[in-house]
């Protein structure tokens, strides 16, 4: 009997623990989009593929696999041909753009910090965008945000996982919505059109 009571207590106390370790391996839906006739190479560095965010000492969020799934879907909606490469020597001669994504920071806010009944996650991305010859076009800062509907009866791990998945979906939405609105990309695109017309 004492053992059962002890076990129940441990289970309850484990539920109250303030640490959370989350791994995101969600498969994201394919994007609905009309891609532009551009060949892009996405350079996935090892640090990006295995990225684990540590917003505080008690929380770890492994978003490496999840964000690659997401970017594969999102970039295929932006460009006609997309190659995911792990080093620059894999770039094909037809490539027009080289994009290197990286995570700048992951932040988490819990109900005890924000005094709201929600968990929030911010992921700050940077996309280093270069032309095929290596000329820098721009560095695009891309923030993404996700929050849980509420925190009622949700464990900290589940809530952070849910908010992170929403933040990753938001990153895909931001990319699709704003990529071709980046002034430097717009300029680069118009120069490509001029080049193609003059050929």
């Amino acid at each position: 009997m004492k053992r059962i009571v002890g076990l129940v207590l441990i289970v309850f106390l484990a539920g109250c623990s303030s640490s959370a370790s989350v791994k995101i391996s969600t498969v994201f839906p394919s994007v609905v989009s009309e891609s532009k006739p551009i060949n892009a190479s996405i350079l996935i560095e090892d640090s990006f593929a295995t990225y684990v965010g540590a917003p505080n000492k008690n929380t770890k969020i492994d978003i490496g696999a999840g964000q690659i799934n997401l970017l594969k879907s999102a970039f295929s909606g932006l460009f006609e041909t997309v190659d995911f490469i792990t080093s620059l020597d894999q770039i094909s001669p037809e490539t027009d753009l080289i994009i290197t994504p990286s995570v700048l920071e992951v932040q988490v806010s819990t109900p005890s910090e924000n005094y709201l009944n929600v968990f929030e996650v911010w992921i700050k991305y940077n996309l280093e965008i270069k032309a095929a010859d290596g000329t820098p076009i721009t560095n695009w800062f891309m923030p993404a945000y996700g929050k849980t509907p509420d925190s009622f009866m949700a464990s900290k791990e589940n809530a952070i996982e849910q908010a992170t998945v929403i933040a990753l979906r938001d990153a895909g939405a931001k990319l699709m919505l704003d990529f071709y609105r980046i002034p430097a990309i717009n300029d680069w695109l118009s120069r490509q059109n001029i080049k193609q017309e003059s050929r």
């Binding site: 609905v32 979906r169 938001d170 939405a173």
Partner: peptide, 12 residues
């Protein structure tokens, strides 16, 4: 929402 991703996300 999944079928038409990402056009009915909170941002879009």
């Amino acid at each position: 929402i999944d079928a038409i991703y990402p056009w009915f996300e909170p941002r879009t």
